[in-house]
Design a binder for these strands. Structure first.
Lengths: 213, 213
DNA sequence: GACAACATACATTCGTGTATGTATAATTAA
DNA sequence: TTAATTATACATACACGAATGTATGTTGTC
């Protein structure tokens, strides 16, 4: 049982800041439960208990479980998309090295940040976009596609700079790195204890670039 | 709604072969529902309806939902593991080419076989090994690891034959192809309509091998 | 005193597991 | 060979708990 109580006390709280605290506590508790048991196997009572509130508090802040789920997505994807955008905007003389570095960085981030691990596990394995969650698929999928499109810009830059072998296709490379990253993160999250990502992140990514650099 | 009725008629049937038919119909209906909505969001009534039986029939053949889930796993992994074992046992003069071919074959198989797609989607995204399903994790995980260990044998062969560049490590390559395959299948199953696997399977795998062959 | 931020209580639905009923097939007895 | 018996392969009915959503109560804040 890795679920921890996020809120510290069970006192009555009515100020704006305190309301924000319970809001955050609910989201934190939700990510923890969702990632461990899946959205469908998590009851609002589970979340409430971990956040040291009652379901009443949850229904005050959120309409239902689906909106909690969606709120988590926003909180998780906003920084990720921003990070990627920021990286591609900063000029760098070797786009392939730059992509190499950001990929390693993204992977190592997971080893350092439990919250990110939980959120990623949630959206990769912990949810199914059917039933109540179906309506969020388009929105979430679109955000994911937008972020992933950024990958292609590194290869286009490299191509333009003549840094790609003639045999290499930017389209395939984009699809390839996308799948590769997805697979690494998947396999890591599926077995965090036995997959030594700290050690393997750089060699794995280096392996990918070894033929085009 | 892609769920189809698998059994044809609703008459009373009591022969051994007919019992086997309903058993199969239940499993088929279960895979379809599990892969589309997830195990947790699927009720036994859903399955029964698609299989043209009642929950009574399900409880006759299976103890509960978990055992249906486990039965599906057996039916799916047995042929897969057998295929991989058979391939590695057959002698081939170029192990890297052999691995390339089997990877492409595995991927293209998904484009041809709905059942395999459903089963893979089920075990990748449709289930969470917690609660009732937790007890199957060890067993399923072990079978997966056993199959994946086979990948390393191709690279060890290649290394022994001096077919690997000195810089390449068999361990990293094994981990790498494993993640890569997982990622390709993941991304494909996540968006079957837009991911053209028939077209991209071979280029993607070729891209992986381009630097070590 | 009004409203925000909850807690508590209640009604209802849904899924599960089990108990029981029943028609047919398989087996045995004659 | 056939009639009686038993076991199989389900369908039906019921009892129960769990989760949801809502209605209402309560407390502190501004």
């Amino acid at each position: 049982m890795y679920v921890v109580n996020v809120a510290e006390e069970l006192i009555m709280r009515r100020t704006k800041e305190d309301a924000q605290k319970t809001y955050d506590a609910i989201l934190d508790a939700a990510v923890a439960h969702f990632s461990q048991r899946g959205v469908a196997n998590t009851s609002l009572e589970d979340i409430a208990e971990s956040a040291n509130v009652t379901r009443g508090a949850i229904y005050w802040h959120f309409k239902n479980k689906g909106e909690i789920f969606d709120s988590i997505h926003e909180r998780f994807y906003q920084p990720l998309a921003a990070l990627l955008l920021e990286d591609i905007e900063t000029s760098h003389n070797d786009p392939l090295q730059q992509l190499h570095d950001i990929c390693v960085k993204l992977l190592l981030d997971f080893t350092l940040d439990l919250k990110k691990r939980q959120a990623a596990a949630l959206f990769m394995f912990g949810c199914h976009y059917s039933g109540d969650l179906e309506k969020y698929w388009d929105k979430h999928h679109k955000k994911k596609e937008d972020s992933l499109k950024i990958f292609s810009r590194y290869f286009e830059k490299a191509k333009k700079d003549g840094r790609l072998p003639a045999s290499a296709s930017p389209e395939i490379l984009t699809l390839s790195i996308r799948c590769y990253m997805k697979g690494i993160i998947s396999e890591y999250l599926n077995d965090v204890e036995n997959f030594n990502l700290e050690k393997n992140a750089e060699p794995l990514i280096a392996q990918f670039f070894s033929n085009i650099k």
